Simulated scan of single mutants.
Amino acid sequence: MTELRPLTDNDLAAVQQLDLLCFEGDAFASGWWHKAVSGQGAFASVAWQDDRLLGYCLFSRVLDEAELLRIAIAPDARQRGLGARLLSHAETALRESGTAQLFLEVRLSNQPAQQLYRRAGWQQSGRRKDYYPLADGREDALIFSRTL
């Protein structure tokens, strides 16, 4: 059975290791993980099964708004609905703590993520031209939002 819960200090090493795996060495700033543990400006949910971290999602928080900064599922645990469950768990916790509006940016080419967000009730609300760097140029970001 998969356990979904808020991030704790005990999760930090595993989260950072999964982050490196899923984002090919592009590690997310460690300060955000510590903010999420302390509840000061960030929130993260994790998914554990049999002493193994399967996924996480990380939001920044300001007043009644939150932005999804990262979501990742271990490669061998994908396509089983865990991303949707993890996102829903985090959204519920954010709503219960007073968050009313959610935002995120996603690469134009990242169709699986876009499908996840749309199925979860997010709507495209804008576009940032040339937002993400590529080896041979730049890629647009789609902006999604959701009211809780």
Rank of each mutant, 00 (worst) to 15 (best):
T2H: 02
T2S: 10
E3L: 15
L4E: 05
L4N: 04
L4C: 01
L4W: 03
R5H: 08
R5T: 07
P6E: 12
P6T: 10
L7K: 06
L7R: 02
T8P: 00
T8K: 11
D9N: 13
L12H: 12
L12Q: 12
L12C: 14
A14W: 05
A14R: 13
Q16W: 09
Q17K: 13
L18E: 01
L18K: 04
L20E: 15
L21G: 03
L21E: 15
L21N: 11
C22R: 09
E24F: 11
G25N: 09
G25H: 10
D26M: 13
A27R: 14
A29R: 14
S30Q: 15
S30D: 14
G31W: 05
W33V: 04
H34T: 11
K35S: 14
A36I: 03
V37C: 12
S38Q: 12
S38W: 03
G39H: 11
A44M: 07
S45K: 05
S45Y: 10
S45F: 06
V46F: 07
A47K: 06
A47P: 07
W48M: 14
D50P: 07
R52Y: 06
L54N: 08
G55S: 01
Y56F: 14
C57V: 09
L58Y: 10
F59E: 05
S60A: 14
S60N: 13
R61G: 00
L63F: 13
E67L: 01
L68V: 04
L69R: 12
R70L: 13
A72M: 05
A72T: 08
I73Q: 03
I73H: 06
A74M: 07
A74R: 15
P75Y: 06
D76W: 10
D76E: 15
Q79P: 01
Q79V: 04
R80I: 02
R80V: 02
R80K: 15
G81C: 08
G83R: 05
G83A: 10
R85N: 06
R85M: 11
L86V: 02
L87I: 03
L87D: 02
S88K: 13
A90K: 02
A90V: 00
T92S: 09
T92G: 01
T92V: 11
A93V: 03
A93Q: 14
R95T: 14
E96S: 11
S97T: 11
S97W: 00
G98K: 04
T99E: 02
A100I: 10
Q101Y: 12
Q101K: 11
L102S: 07
E105C: 09
V106F: 05
L108V: 04
L108C: 03
L108T: 08
S109N: 01
S109T: 04
N110E: 07
Q111E: 11
P112R: 03
P112E: 02
Q114W: 01
Q114A: 01
Q114G: 00
Q115T: 10
L116T: 00
R118V: 07
R118W: 00
R119W: 02
R119A: 14
A120E: 08
G121C: 07
Q123R: 14
Q124C: 06
G126Y: 07
G126T: 10
R128D: 04
Y131P: 08
P133M: 07
L134K: 08
L134D: 09
A135S: 04
G137K: 08
R138M: 07
R138Y: 10
E139N: 05
D140E: 10
L142W: 13
T147A: 09
L148D: 03
L148N: 12
